[in-house]
Computed example of a mutant assay.
Amino acid sequence: MDAILKRRAAAVLTKNEAQFLADVDPKNAKLVAAQKVLFENLVQFGFVKLNYLQDRPQFEQKLIDKYGPTTYLVSVVMSYQIGGIDDQLVKAPLGYMFVQRGGRYLLINDTYMDSALPIGAHKEAWDVGPVLVRRGARALVVVERGKAGLAKSILADAESAVRAVNKLWSANWRGGGLVIALDDKVVRTADYTKPKDAEDFLAVATHVYRTLPGEVQAEGEDGGAYVIVNPRYRDELDARVLAHEFTHVATAPYGPDAPRWLVEGTAEYVEQLPMDGERDLDLARYRRMIRSKYLNKVKALPADPVFYASMDSSYPIGWYAVDYLVDKYGATKLAKLYQELARQGFSQNQRDLIMTAQLGRTEAQLFADLKKR
Rank of each mutant, 00 (worst) to 15 (best):
A3Y: 07
L5G: 04
R7D: 14
T14L: 04
K15C: 10
A34P: 02
F39M: 10
E40T: 05
V43I: 15
V43P: 11
D55I: 10
K66I: 06
G68E: 10
D87A: 14
L94K: 08
G103C: 07
L107R: 05
Y112F: 14
G120K: 10
G120P: 09
K123S: 13
A125M: 14
A148C: 03
K152T: 13
A156E: 12
A158G: 10
S160M: 07
K167A: 14
A171Q: 13
N172T: 12
N172M: 08
V179P: 02
V179K: 01
D183L: 10
D183A: 14
D184I: 00
K185T: 06
R188T: 10
P195L: 14
L202Q: 12
T206V: 13
T206W: 02
G220C: 08
G220P: 03
D222F: 06
Y226D: 11
Y226C: 01
V227S: 05
V227F: 06
R232A: 09
R234V: 04
D235I: 00
H244Y: 06
F246S: 03
A250K: 00
T251Q: 09
D257H: 15
V263G: 01
V263L: 09
A267N: 06
Y269V: 05
P274A: 07
M275V: 12
M275D: 04
Y294S: 01
V298P: 00
A300F: 03
D304E: 12
S310L: 11
P316E: 00
Y324L: 02
D352N: 15
M355E: 10
R373P: 00
